[in-house]
Design a protein around this nucleic acid. Structure first.
Lengths: 219, 219
DNA sequence: ACCTCATTTACAGACTAACGGTCTGTATGT
DNA sequence: ACATACAGACCGTTAGTCTGTAAATGAGGT
């Protein structure tokens, strides 16, 4: 086949396939041949749409980042909630998200997938914390729902703790340990004026961690 | 040259050279040829002492981990301090360590060196937190110098925050931001019964961060 | 509106350089 | 003599390049 009418579909196919393989096997252990085999495309096709394997990875990250930003921006710019409620909403939706189960099935411990871990950490620092969490905390301080100082640094600390330490995809633990982690996280956030983790969200964290753990031991 | 009298020196040469190259250029971008060129050894020599490039990396990590563990164990097992004093001592010595300047000269942002970042995170989770920080917190709770619960989880939280977020090697920031981070870290640790970061240690963090930042902009 | 044809685009796949790793050969210490 | 510490040719696989080709497209004439 030459000169496809709908090249966007080819791009999508490459991105989707590569994303799956990268999360399943890791970036290094996914070869271009793997992508070629799974997509039934040719090297020429892939290098026509992307400049390198790295480029494919970057584009996948951009796509995920954009989807994530959109979700967060909707909450941040909402007029119906105060600062604290927005924080609560974000953590609620990220944990009770519909595609949660699928992720638990696929993802290996991110700690064993350095590339994905690093980009994950980077996104928290460069995008999520400064552009979404910090403004919301600032809003919360202004509207009186949050008592705190240094919103930028608080946002960073909260995201590091919740998105790396509490994140079961990074390092899953058993139910009890996860519950204890959540409790410590709550006592920390409460003490700095940010009490936004609800009981049912904690349970979702615990369930998710357990699911990832079980899925791994099955392999 | 064949059949060297002192093969340990060859092993050391390989480990030291590889460690430097891995931190300078990253694991992936350091080729065996680079190591061969810099050591003036041959492929045969390297594969005689190591089974793979990965193996070299692992041995480097083990060496660093062992040195680190030794330092931490000495504090943990000391009879002259209570729990809180031990924590204080650890953070003091890790920041005011003699080889600090050398590291600042070499290291790129760990966030751009995924492999090293991942092993760094892993060591905190698998070794430092459970084997050293948690026991010390437990001791502090027992001797009354620390008021807290869940020492294992607290240890994890403290190490995540201090060794990733506050660590200038991971993500250096300017002096003001670093100072703010330290302040937030202090308010967090204080609130959970762990006030162990002294003013002069904060200044060391700030200086270190600034040094790493300046060094990078020079490149 | 329809046909023509040059041009651009979306691929296919042979080819290349560099990589990690293996294997055989060799000199030197024990 | 034998084991050890190398040296370096060799191999399969990898990411990335380059050339070839067929289908879509857009401009110009009818």
């Amino acid at each position: 086949m030459a000169r496809n009418k709908y090249p966007e579909e080819t791009v999508e196919l490459i991105l989707n396939t590569a994303a799956r393989l990268f999360t399943e096997k890791g970036f290094d252990k996914t070869s271009l041949q793997d992508i070629i085999d799974e997509t039934k495309l040719s090297k020429g096709a892939i290098y026509h749409h992307f400049t390198s394997k790295e480029d494919i990875f970057d584009k996948i990250c951009q796509r995920i980042g954009a989807a994530n930003s959109e979700r967060l921006a909707a909450v941040r710019d909402s007029k119906d909630m105060n600062g604290l409620e927005k924080l609560r909403s974000i953590f609620r939706s990220s944990m009770l998200h519909p595609n949660q189960e699928r992720i638990a099935e696929i993802i290996p411990r991110l700690i064993d997938n350095p590339r994905i871990l690093a980009i994950h950490v980077k996104m928290q620092f460069e995008n999520v914390a400064p552009n979404f969490i910090a403004p919301i905390i600032r809003e919360g301080i202004a509207d009186g729902s949050i008592q705190a100082e240094a919103p930028e640094q608080l946002a960073e600390a909260v995201m590091i703790l919740s998105d790396i330490w509490l994140n079961p995809a990074v390092w899953p633990v058993n139910r009890e340990d996860m519950r204890k982690r959540c409790e410590v996280f709550r006592s920390i956030t409460r003490s700095i004026g940010l009490d936004f983790l609800d009981d049912d969200v904690v349970e979702a964290y615990v369930d998710y961690s357990d699911a990832v753990l079980n899925n791994q031991s099955n392999k």
